[in-house]
């Protein structure tokens, strides 16, 4: 494996990208989970699907698109979708819950149309849907790095604003912290992280990498900083274990990464159960 990593550029690309998204996806995912926006992440990734499928189809039809990396197109549509969702959320407050499933359906619907229109990109498409170890190019890696820089800078500089917005949106308004800029940037950044992650974990599993490690971390963390740290640790473990096994077993890394993170979640839940049972036992012994 180590030898292969030095020999093959595609493996380096995949592992470096993997390690970067194992960091940023759970990091941003923590804010998404505590703000209960997981469904929005899902909707955006399906909008990206429409973009990717559209771009793959057009690349068969129009010369210009065959030179364009579909990832750009996917990121572009996801960002567009994030702006649209944000607009719908503010203009039609009462229909907020409806706007998101509608956009999600639109994403799958348009994606399905393009997929059936074009024949013969199923291997490519599989890579976009479930991730791929071999398909990550230098250019893709470069895009992931740039996005990671943006995400980390955003969270570093707006940490306190994002915290209060997540914990208590009303209080953030009263205290003059809430701003349209931060809210809008948050949505766009979510779209960017989805765009960055889809090459490795696949469009259908991006939101899992953003939420499952966080769900596990929240079982053991007392503080927000702690939850952040554990989310990233668990995310990285899932990505590394998932990528290595995907490479050896020759299966889609999206599957192995997400299944690994779910196994980690179950292990933590099990450990918590055993620990509390033991505490009860100890107490009973004390009583006896």
């Amino acid at each position: 494996m180590i030898d292969a990593l030095f020999t093959y550029e595609f493996l380096q690309n995949a592992f470096l990208s993997g390690i970067i998204i194992g960091f940023i996806a759970p990091l941003l995912g923590l804010f998404i989970v505590v703000r209960r926006l997981a469904l929005i992440a899902d909707a955006l990734s399906h909008v990206a699907l429409a973009g990717i499928a559209g771009s793959l189809y057009l690349s068969q039809q129009v010369l210009f698109f065959s030179a364009l990396n579909p990832v750009y197109f996917g990121i572009g549509t996801a960002v567009g979708g994030s702006l649209l969702i944000e607009r719908l959320r503010t203009v039609y407050k009462h229909y907020e819950e409806l706007a998101i499933p509608v956009i999600l359906s639109a994403g799958i619907g348009i994606g399905a149309i393009f997929i059936s229109l074009s024949q013969g990109f199923s291997a490519d498409l599989m890579g976009y849907l479930f991730g791929s170890v071999s398909a990550v190019s230098r250019q893709d890696l470069f895009v992931v790095m740039v996005i990671a820089l943006i995400v980390v800078a955003f969270i570093y500089f707006f940490y306190k604003e994002l915290f209060i917005l997540s914990f208590d949106a009303e209080y953030s308004k009263v205290s003059g912290v809430y701003s349209r800029f931060i809210q809008l940037s948050f949505m766009v950044i979510t779209a960017l992280v989805i765009g960055a992650s889809m090459r490795i974990v696949g469009i259908l599993l991006v939101s899992s990498l953003m939420t499952v490690p966080v769900a596990a971390a929240m079982q053991i963390a007392k503080s927000f900083k702690g939850a952040m740290l554990y989310s990233i640790l668990i995310g990285e473990m899932a990505v590394v274990i998932g990528l290595v096994s995907a490479f050896y077993l020759d299966i889609a890394p999206g599957g192995t990464i997400v299944v690994t993170s779910i196994v980690l979640l179950l292990m933590i839940l099990g450990w918590k159960k055993v620990r509390s049972a033991r505490q009860v036992l100890l107490k009973e012994e004390e009583v006896v």
Binding site: K160, S175, G176, V177, K222
Partner: peptide, 28 residues
């Protein structure tokens, strides 16, 4: 009525009351 599973310590919550006073780009 906040999300009771929210991972934050008491101190983190109280300190968040200083957010506006600190101003943008300043860290605690």
């Amino acid at each position: 009525s906040f999300n009771s599973g929210f991972p934050a310590t008491v101190l983190e919550v109280v300190r968040s009351g200083l957010t506006r006073k600190k101003g943008l780009f300043k860290r605690f």
